[in-house]
Every structure is written in structure tokens, then in C-alpha cells.
């Protein structure tokens, strides 16, 4: 029982690390490109949000699995 909760917690942490790295890299790329080409900032922002949304989607599916784990064990 406790191990299941632990798994859910560790899973959520790993998801956070992965998504954080991914979104951080997107942010880095976007900020750098905006600094290099301020006139294209609108397009870059749109692409950034889109890509971040895709990463977020993957991360959220992982998070849902973690919630399922935690609920299945603890709830």
C-alpha cells in the first residue's frame, strides 16, 4: 500500500523533472530567438506555447497515471 503511494510520488517527481527540462529548453530557445529576432516575437511565442502544450500533455498523462496509482492504493 505504502509502496504504491511512494511509486506515485516518485513518478510525479520524475514527470516534473522531465517536463521542467523540456519546457525550460523551449523557453530558453524562445527567449534566445526573440532576442535575436525581436520582430518575429509573435510567431515565436505562438510556436513556444504550442510546443509547451504538447510537452505538458505528455506530462499530464503521466500525472494522471500517478493520481490513479495513488487513488487506487490510498483511496
Amino acid at each position: 500500500m505504502e509502496l504504491g503511494l511512494l511509486a506515485a510520488g516518485i513518478g510525479a517527481g520524475i514527470i516534473a523533472i522531465g517536463a521542467g527540462i523540456g519546457i525550460g529548453m523551449i523557453g530558453k530557445g524562445a527567449v534566445e530567438s526573440i532576442a535575436r529576432q525581436p520582430e518575429a516575437s509573435g510567431d515565436i511565442r505562438g510556436a513556444m506555447i504550442l510546443t509547451a502544450a504538447f510537452i505538458e500533455g505528455v506530462a499530464l498523462i503521466g500525472a494522471i497515471i500517478c493520481i490513479l496509482l495513488a487513488l487506487g492504493v490510498g483511496g
Partner: peptide, 13 residues
């Protein structure tokens, strides 16, 4: 599916 989970999870969290 990702579309629905994204909105759901964001608002829920």
C-alpha cells in the same frame, strides 16, 4: 485525449 486531459488536469491541479 491529450486535449481533454490537459484542460482537466490543469484546472484540477
Amino acid at each position: 485525449l491529450a486535449l481533454c486531459f490537459r484542460l482537466f488536469a490543469n484546472m484540477l491541479s
